[in-house]
Write a protein that binds this DNA or RNA. Sequence first.
DNA 1: GTGAAAGCGCTAACAA
DNA 2: TTGTTAGCGCTTTCAC
Lengths: 339, 339
Amino acid sequence: MPKPPKMADVAKAVGVSPMTVSRAFRRDTSVGEATREKILQIAEEMGYVFDSTASNLRSQRTGFVAVTIPSLNNSNFADTVRGLNEILQTAGLQLLLGYTNYDVNEEERLIEQLLRRRPEAMVVTGGCHTDRARRLLVSSGIPVVETWDIPRSPVGYTVGFSNADAMGRMVEHLQSAGARHLTFIGGDDNGDTRGADRRRGFVAAARRLRLDYQLTPLGSPPVSMREGVRAMAEIFEARQPIDAVVCVSDLAAFGALTECQRRGVSVPDEVMIAGFGAYDIADVALPGLTTIDAHSLAIGNRTGELLVALLRGGTDVAAAQTVLHIEPTLRISGSTVSR
Amino acid sequence: MPKPPKMADVAKAVGVSPMTVSRAFRRDTSVGEATREKILQIAEEMGYVFDSTASNLRSQRTGFVAVTIPSLNNSNFADTVRGLNEILQTAGLQLLLGYTNYDVNEEERLIEQLLRRRPEAMVVTGGCHTDRARRLLVSSGIPVVETWDIPRSPVGYTVGFSNADAMGRMVEHLQSAGARHLTFIGGDDNGDTRGADRRRGFVAAARRLRLDYQLTPLGSPPVSMREGVRAMAEIFEARQPIDAVVCVSDLAAFGALTECQRRGVSVPDEVMIAGFGAYDIADVALPGLTTIDAHSLAIGNRTGELLVALLRGGTDVAAAQTVLHIEPTLRISGSTVSR
DNA sequence: GTGAAAGCGCTAACAA
DNA sequence: TTGTTAGCGCTTTCAC
């Protein structure tokens, strides 16, 4: 295998300086149109592939945007990543993805690893990080966006919503639909701060509205359909009076729904079921699941637009909003209201 | 904002040469234990962050593994990516992800972009690429793995299975369960070659077994739950004799199932429903969906192990199998067999 | 519109 | 175990 050609080889073959080849490979710079075409054509014939690693070092710009998310096997975050990538790809930016697996220590490790790659911006999920992770983010000097949360003390920019408030609105809906004895199905405290926030919001609202409530903890996140089945089964075994279950996600809610159907318990007449996330299943299940649409895709889109403005836009960077609130939408369906 | 420290700054502060600092930041090389600790500690205090971009250029190793997948909003590919990342992360390799959106031209564009980043290996989904994409892959000189398929003329390594054969086995099962009039629900030809392969397998098996069959095309992939609903509704409107529907994925199958339930059609007694992919929903739905488990996670794991062996393992690289067949498993459940 | 010189921050290769 | 020298392949900067 012969060594792959470099820019200098192309330059020699065309009969120009390497600098002209370099310019030809970028849209904006000034090269004669005929020269550019000739260069690109000969480069293609030679099998030349532009080397970003050298470009990155010299120009001190990598075109990377690093993102840490808990997991991709949860379509909510996957939607956000998709929405983010839609915008970034157009701007020629490349995602650098890391999975924290709902663990802040893993997140810290990942943030350090990712910063070594010299991303031009960093997007993290949630507003809860280790002290060292915060320090790394702040001293990196690049724009940082926290998503899916409204942290009390943000590191940089924020694109998200209050998980607690959203769940509060769900509890209000259930009360007005007639529920008096509620239970919350969600993962344990460890790791999933979004889930914990939703539980806090549930508890706060239940207290405020003087509703009877309890909590049905599951294992570690991500909470799956099967765990919704298991939790609902436990609830039935406990034989407490229950007329509404609030689930940390639509997946658990669907599991709970099928367990009700398996036992011949009518939803919503005997038990109401509420989810979170506006997954496809919420629409397609029978009955449909009442849920909260957090606008996952829009969170990604807005984050992407913010970053492109920050990185590529020159002037009014300071004018960018620091906190971008994406208001979730309550979507009422057959799992809480008879049709 | 002062300029961030570089390796030379750390070296000066510690009183050693930059080379020693460089060595201290890698596990394998020889540095005095005391020296290493002192270097790492002072580096941390100074807020030094290792610069991979420089390292990559000089060492000609990036630690990147590039991956192109059609979409992440399909848990099958997401599982494969997760399985791949599990292995790569352990080996210190970083995923570089690109979304083709089921479009070979987009794939070509993406492959070119990704190769510029000088990945050490490339993983692509499927065995169908543009000529130029193939050329780029071959002449890149790095290991290439095609997954989720068994291409007739592979570019490099293969980790996958025959989508057509798997669907054939499903049709055999339906026949033995008593089905005589089958229809296939799947996306159109464009883009999703896995889906097209499954349809081919369906048609071939139906012919071989002399079953009556038809095709119910949907729009572009990815095929969602809602499209399964729509397709099933169309099938009922057409009033053809049908006793089994075979869906390109479990998501469409679940949509079809709910449409049957909406119309009071008994599954499996009046209509059998089969899916593909062993999504969570196949287990949790009522009745459970008969499906094919393609072992998405294992495809990712095996691919990761192959690459780690190829990249980090020194000796018996040539000994690696070129084609790794991951045999799919037929999982029979209540949607095709009465309980 | 094009070219020459210098150097981005690390590490390969060799020496001690 | 540690240090020295040179250079990875581009692009910045300045000159014309």
